[in-house]
Simulated scan of single mutants.
Amino acid sequence: MKVRVRSGDSFWYYSQLFQIPLNLITDSNPDLNPANLQVGQEIQIPGYIDKFYSIKRGDTFWKLSAIGNMSVDALMLLNQNVNPNQLKAGENILLPVRVTSPIVNGKREYDYHVLQDDLNQLKKIYPFININSVGKSVLGLPIQEIRLGNGPKKVQMNASFHANEWITTSILMSYLNTYLLSLTNSSLIRGISTLPLYNSVELTLIPMVNPDGVNLVLNGPPGEFRESVIKMNNGSTDFNDWKANIRGIDLNNQYLAKWEIEKERKKPKAPSPRDYPGDAPLTEPEAIAMENLARSLPFDRMLAFHTQGKEFYWGYEGFEPPESKRLADEFERVSGYKAVCYIDSHAGYRDWFIQEFRRPGFTIELGKGVNPLPLSQFDEIYEDVLGIFLASLYM
């Protein structure tokens, strides 16, 4: 929601007027100097939208404020060209409306178009989040990064490395929405106050590493790749088993963590719906973007969301630091998921991250069953893993 500065207004006053933490207002207006606001400047108020209301006979600002549980001055701030003493029936004014329910509906087929729509809406309501592209997919789709928070601790989470694991994107986006609602409504999540987390943690999310692959699974093949992907898929137009990117490369087998072992033992020896590590490490733009991100913003910990198994992996070749065990114990406690230190797997993003930076990295295997997991598991997954999302920030 946008308002215009009046004489005597301040960020602190807006914080009191709308009951929004001051630093969220400051972060929503990074180009403005809070100590030198100018009359007429446009200010973004997070956690609110405005909506038109048609004045009815007998309405007053005082009556509307009482009905809507809002300040009279909030109405006057949004309607500076309206004389509150001379309201006319049929006249349109703006009402400030606090957002108290989620924008993200994760319980649906969640392709790149849905992701973009949700990101656009979230950015409008919560302008303190930053949305950037860290690279592009083979087909040129931006690989979107959401970043928020001001703390020294840096936590990275990512989802949909694998195309038919797209439910991980809707889960991660739902956690983001829950977090944003908690921040702007000063509400607790499982008894935890989130504003201290915002002030101590910089959180960065890549909700869809493999947008081309997700779109392929959910929407079918794009024109220019139609022939090649159907051929790789043994002539079938059912892409539910497809894990790779649009070129048939498994993005989570692309990293320099004993890549040559995976190359040797993986059955596919050419581009395939799943498991082909490529002709060399880091050939795919999506994998390169994720490596560049880790190098440009050294994370203190990283969580990669996959499916399925109701377990998570937290070690790699002894490179994991002692902190990883402490985090793994807490993740297991709050989720009921089984903590597994070592598995016989290499060349994954988590493997490389732990090896390269000697910092905690986790692969969280959501749910259980056959991929793509059905949306009927969404609520159970959300509740099980919400504790891991929170623990990764507060630990």
Rank of each mutant, 00 (worst) to 15 (best):
S54M: 11
S392E: 04
P222C: 11
I288K: 14
G90H: 02
Y316H: 10
Q86G: 03
L176K: 02
E165L: 01
L17T: 07
R6E: 10
L188Y: 14
K2W: 00
Y394F: 12
D275P: 00
T169G: 01
L24M: 11
Y255F: 15
S228T: 14
G58S: 13
H306R: 12
V209G: 05
T178R: 05
L122Q: 11
M76K: 15
F61T: 13
N79H: 08
I246T: 10
E356H: 14
Y276M: 02
L64D: 11
Q44E: 12
G140E: 05
I246D: 01
E284G: 07
H162S: 07
N150W: 09
Q16A: 08
V138H: 04
E380G: 04
L282A: 01
G8Y: 11
G40A: 09
D117Y: 05
A66M: 11
L251A: 10
Y342C: 14
L203F: 02
E383W: 08
R98K: 15
V99L: 14
K2G: 05
G309S: 13
A289Y: 01
N92I: 15
L94K: 10
G348L: 06
A289R: 02
T168W: 10
G248A: 08
P30Y: 02
Y382H: 10
H306T: 06
G361V: 06
L64W: 05
P152I: 05
F312A: 00
L251D: 00
T169R: 09
K243H: 08
A339E: 07
E42C: 04
E380L: 10
R226V: 01
D351V: 03
P322W: 15
P321D: 07
S335N: 08
H113M: 08
L75V: 13
Q44W: 08
N292L: 10
A257V: 10
M290D: 00
Y53T: 10
P30E: 07
